[in-house]
């Protein structure tokens, strides 16, 4: 797959329709890379001219800020804002709700104002306006799917319906967990927990959540966040299977007309 960077567009004196903010997980985590590829494939298939920053992209600073390291957050955030402003970026999309939250809500105070959407919002828009067409079949047709709300898309930004609408287009059977939407339970990775061992306790948070998800009888757990993807996949593996964990864009790639 060929992707063009902002630098390449700039060299051609062109401006892409949208900047795809890949994020650290989407760039470096093996599992999350598949999501990145799936989403890039959807964008290409929908005929959207997009760019990535490539190696000019830096961590948004979400984990540093939430760990309490404001200096580091400011350093990496200001660097990103410099880069984005230099290219005159206006419209962005990302498959990571942490990057989404930071860029949308926290960069403006630092001088970075962008129109950013989460990939589930863009997917909904593309399905609604027919830029991507679902085959109505696909490998997930009729299967029981449960959707795990990420904290940073859900409570942090109040986006609950767009991902569910996207799932509806797959002609699957959507089953809700008891703790969903505003009451959704965290996967355990936020607040820079992803990078540290758990504090002493009875159980890991992802196990609590995976048990709830498996309890719905779903054989697919849909997520919208690379950290949730890792935590839920680890949990399912520890439970020795029972369901597959996918990001929404992977489900759409499987069910769209190519």
């Amino acid at each position: 797959m060929t992707v063009k960077t902002m630098a390449q567009f700039a060299a051609e004196n062109k401006i892409p329709e949208i900047l795809f903010w890949v994020g650290c997980a989407g760039s470096f985590d093996d599992r999350a890379q598949k999501v990145t590829r799936a989403f890039a494939e959807i964008l290409t298939s929908a005929g959207i001219e997009f760019a990535v920053l490539g190696d000019e992209e830096a961590c948004t600073g979400d984990p540093a800020r939430r760990a309490g390291n404001e200096f580091l957050f400011q350093m990496t955030a200001l660097q990103n804002i410099e880069t984005l402003n230099m290219y005159g970026v206006k419209k962005m999309v990302t498959a990571c709700p942490h990057c989404f939250n930071t860029i949308k809500n926290e960069y403006p105070a630092l001088g970075g104002h962008y129109d950013i959407v989460h990939h589930t919002q863009l997917l909904q828009e593309l399905i609604d306006n027919g830029r991507i067409k679902m085959t109505g079949g696909g490998e997930f047709k009729g299967r029981r799917i449960t959707y795990h709300d990420s904290c940073y898309l859900g409570r942090a930004n109040g986006i609950y319906e767009a991902p569910r609408d996207v799932l509806q287009s797959l002609d699957t059977q959507l089953v809700e967990m008891k703790r969903s939407k505003t009451n959704g339970l965290c996967c355990g990775a936020g607040g820079a927990q992803m990078w540290k061992e758990d504090e002493p306790g009875d159980k890991r948070i992802n196990m609590e959540r995976v048990e709830e998800a498996l309890g719905t009888g779903a054989d697919v757990i849909a997520v919208n966040c690379p950290f949730c993807l890792t935590m839920m996949s680890d949990g399912v593996t520890a439970k020795e299977g029972g369901a597959m964990v996918y990001d929404l864009s992977e489900l759409i790639v499987g069910g769209m007309a190519k």
Binding site: M1, T2, V22, F28, A40, V52, D55, C59
Partner: peptide, 16 residues
């Protein structure tokens, strides 16, 4: 400038 000290390029995902 990344959250993990792994991997090479940020566009490695596109090269597969």
């Amino acid at each position: 400038q990344r959250a993990w000290s792994v991997g090479t390029s940020r566009t490695a995902w596109a090269e597969e």
